[in-house]
Write a protein that binds this DNA or RNA. Structure first.
Length: 238
DNA sequence: CAGCCCATACCGGTAGCGCT
DNA sequence: AGCGCTACCGGTATGGGCTG
């Protein structure tokens, strides 16, 4: 009988410890810092890495960490009966061209899905919704704006009954654009659909993980949650 | 407004480290 | 010991800010 082999650690070839790599990825994705900003900040604390290393690490480990966060969220929401999704699109500039970033956000402000397309039509809406439904269990209701592509896509999926069109009752979902816009600005620009797609989805998941709504809870509670979020962060991809 | 300057992300190539 | 892979370097394209 073959001896059960321990899966190789994704950190095995890297010169730096998993702790440092996790710190770097968190700094770069979570805050509006450039690759070089991260390099310089770490240098001040005695860690010597190149900005290119920062780029490589977020590309390699960002999706892994994001996947861990998403899986956690998915199992926490399994069986939840009053899950409501809000669908929305925003413009993002990509090499001078405008593309669309579709997003599904739930009633708690968690960003469930990010999807980049060149067109804003039924086909794009359909692909976006199928992807969201693949990654999460189906919600109780879906709210959209008046864009007709949503209705057409819902007809195709056969779940029109769940759709509610209207202005959203709160601005929570619109607010979730802000962190991405701030981050987008620090990156100067996106060049390829693939890296925009990757960044949008990694950013959304990491934002969810560290979004502790500090204004809604007392300081003690906030500090406990923050410690918990950091401790969990240090366990990802291990 | 035009032209210049600077900071940035991204890419190909490769030395040599570190894993098996 | 052999080789897969990381980390880094030099180069390029490009957008925003600045100056006049």
């Amino acid at each position: 009988m073959p001896r059960p082999r321990k899966p190789a650690s994704p950190f095995r070839y890297f010169n730096s410890s998993p702790e440092v790599i996790r710190l770097v990825v968190m700094m770069y994705v979570r805050f509006p810092l450039s690759l070089r900003n991260v390099e310089d900040l770490l240098f001040e604390r005695g860690i010597d890495i190149s900005h290119e290393t920062v780029r490589m690490w977020w590309n390699r480990f960002g999706p892994m960490f994001a996947g861990d966060i998403r899986r956690q969220r998915r199992s926490a929401m399994r069986g939840f009966r009053h899950w409501r999704w809000h669908l929305d699109e925003m413009y993002v500039k990509l090499n001078g061209e405008m593309v669309y970033l579709w997003r599904a956000v739930d009633q708690e402000g968690e960003i469930l899905e990010s999807f980049v397309t060149r067109a804003r039509d039924k086909d794009a809406a359909l692909r976006f919704m199928k992807r969201a439904l693949k990654h999460h269990s189906a919600p109780y209701a879906i709210t959209t704006d008046g864009l007709r592509s949503y209705r057409a896509a819902m007809n195709e999926l056969g779940n029109t009954a769940k759709q509610e069109v209207g202005r959203w009752v709160n601005n929570r979902v619109e607010n979730s654009h802000l962190p991405f816009r701030r981050r987008e600005r620090a990156m100067l620009r996106f060049r390829r659909m693939k890296s925009l797609q990757k960044f949008a989805s990694v950013h959304a998941n990491i934002h969810n993980h560290f979004n502790l709504e500090r204004h809604l809870v007392d300081r003690q509670t906030f500090k406990e949650r923050r410690s918990a979020a950091l401790a969990e962060w240090q366990s990802f991809a291990s």
